[in-house]
Computed example of a mutant assay.
Amino acid sequence: MSVANEKLEDQPVSKQRLRLWLQMLKTTRFIENELREELRLGFQSTLPRFDVMAMLDRTREGLRMSQLSKQLMVSNGNVTGIIDRLVQEGFVMRVQVKGDKRATLVRLTPKGIEKFAEMAAEHERWINEHLKEIDETEIGHFIDILSKVREEDH
């Protein structure tokens, strides 16, 4: 047991949970900032663009802009700007929805699928590098514990 954990056990559980939350938040922000920089340097891209492309890669048939915004938990305006740039670069296309002249789907183009596959492989490598000190058993425990938190709230 580390010295930090010994001191932690002397505190009420509510304080321990608060400290846990702060550590999770610091770690998440640290890794997210590293990923932002790696995407910027390696692909001249941003994390929001990566997230949009990832969602479209998982939904190859395409998504309406409102669905994309909802899935990513961001405003339609934010997604529209990203999609406009991805369309200009040839990574995404807009497709009319049959039977609804006002609705369009957005989906990755073949060029977008190829680019995202390249980005996703690097993203996985970067995450693996940042979390290399966590072994397989610990990974399973972390996933189980964090899943409990989400299940409790929903």
Rank of each mutant, 00 (worst) to 15 (best):
L72H: 03
R29N: 12
T137R: 12
R19F: 09
L72R: 04
R150K: 11
G77F: 00
K148R: 14
D144P: 00
E124N: 12
K148S: 14
R19G: 04
Q67H: 03
N76P: 06
V3M: 12
T137V: 13
S69W: 01
D84V: 10
L131R: 05
K70H: 08
N78A: 09
R19D: 07
P110I: 15
I145E: 14
E129L: 12
K101R: 13
G62S: 05
M53Y: 02
D84Q: 12
F43E: 07
E122Y: 06
E151H: 08
R40Y: 10
S14F: 08
W21P: 00
E136S: 10
R49D: 00
V149G: 04
L146G: 06
R64I: 00
H123G: 02
E34Q: 12
F50N: 03
H123E: 14
Q96K: 15
E124H: 11
T80C: 03
E152D: 05
P48F: 02
K70Q: 11
E114F: 12
S147Y: 05
H154A: 09
Q16P: 02
N33W: 07
L72G: 02
R29E: 15
M73W: 02
V79M: 00
T59V: 05
I31G: 06
E118W: 07
L18C: 06
M65K: 07
L108S: 07
K101S: 12
D10I: 13
K132N: 10
I82F: 01
L20H: 11
N76T: 04
M53A: 02
A54S: 11
M53I: 09
V106Q: 03
L56K: 05
Q16H: 04
G99D: 05
R85C: 01
F142G: 05
I139Q: 05
L146E: 03
N76F: 07
P110D: 11
Q16E: 14
G62R: 00
G81N: 13
V92M: 03
P48C: 04
A117F: 02
D144N: 11
V149F: 15
V95M: 08
E9P: 01
S147E: 15
E38T: 06
P110S: 13
V92Q: 02
R40M: 09
F50A: 06
G77H: 00
K70T: 13
K111T: 09
K101M: 08
L22P: 04
N76G: 10
D10Q: 12
R60S: 13
S75I: 01
Q88S: 15
A4H: 10
L20K: 14
L56H: 05
A117L: 11
R49M: 03
L8M: 14
T137N: 07
S147W: 04
S66G: 06
R17K: 06
K26V: 01
M53Q: 09
R107E: 11
P110V: 15
E34K: 10
V13S: 07
P12W: 11
I113L: 15
N5Q: 11
T137P: 00
M65H: 05
M119D: 03
L20M: 15
W126P: 02
V95D: 09
L131S: 10
L105T: 05
L86E: 08
G42D: 08
R40G: 07
R49L: 01
S69L: 05
D10R: 13
R94Q: 11
L105R: 09
I82W: 01
Q67D: 06
I83D: 00
E124S: 14
A103D: 07
L63E: 08
D57T: 07
I134R: 14
F50R: 10
F50E: 03
E118L: 15
